[in-house]
């Protein structure tokens, strides 16, 4: 039997990239801005999304895709704000992929939606590798996670357009330097926009809202 060699040079994640491009086109056709929100578990993604929906309800129509390994806790919390929400349970997968997003799109009425927030599975590693068709990636880091995270998980900090340093009201109680987070994040990604926020005291949230509103003018 003749042994043959086939040259391929194919991106292993090509299938994901192809579906991400379809999603991106779909969002463009519907006039929806999609953002991919990523963080470790417990950094405060869902609380921030709930707060953002309530704060901007007279200005923006926001829909949400909730990604979790298990449970519908987050979708229930979002649903209570009155926003459209679809829960994806990955059943073990540590990140969302473009196909999972694609399969949820028929469950939304996106005609009146301005902003689609995709809350990824809580994880600082894998979500950074999978494009979903979003316009940009937004990352949360709560100060109780520690100021060493940018250098420990550089890929996510590199991929994000925005870093929200969350729970800054806890600063008196934890050993964390916000300045170190800023410096080391910018070392990885000099174009990163950084906001310091607290959903508890509402500090810094206006800047985040202004950034979102400016994004929608793009």
């Amino acid at each position: 039997m003749i042994e043959i060699k086939i040259s391929l040079v194919k991106n292993v994640l090509e299938a994901n990239e192809r579906i991400a491009a379809q999603n991106r086109q779909f969002f463009a056709d519907k006039g929806v801005m999609a953002i991919n929100m990523m963080s470790a578990p417990g950094a405060g993604k869902t609380t921030l999304i709930e707060d953002t929906i309530r704060s901007l309800k007279n200005e923006l129509n926001i829909a949400v895709i909730e990604g979790d390994i298990q449970s519908t806790y987050d979708a229930e919390a979002i649903s209570a704000t009155g926003a459209q929400v679809v829960q994806i349970n990955t059943g073990g997968a540590c990140h969302l992929d473009a196909n999972m997003i694609n399969e949820t799109l028929s469950q939304f009425d996106l005609n009146l939606v301005d902003l689609l927030i995709i809350e990824n599975v809580g994880n600082l590693v894998c979500p950074a590798e999978f494009n979903l068709g979003e316009y940009c990636k937004v990352m949360l880091l709560s100060i109780s996670e520690g100021d060493d995270k940018p250098l420990k998980y550089p890929v996510m900090f590199h991929e994000a357009s925005v870093l929200l340093i969350n729970k800054i009201d806890l600063l008196p109680y934890v050993d964390c330097s916000i300045e170190k987070i800023r410096q080391e994040s910018l070392k990885i990604n000099p174009d990163l926009t950084i906001f310091e926020i607290s959903c508890k005291t509402r500090q810094g949230l206006n800047d985040w809202h202004d950034w979102l509103k400016a994004l929608l003018l793009k």
Binding site: K5, I6, S7, L8, V9, K10, N11
Partner: peptide
């Protein structure tokens, strides 16, 4: 300076396969 463009190191590709 921090502004570095990554040229390589993020590949995840199948280059070739051999068989009969």
């Amino acid at each position: 300076q921090a502004d570095i463009q990554i040229i390589s190191g993020r590949e995840l590709e199948i280059v070739e396969f051999e068989g009969s």
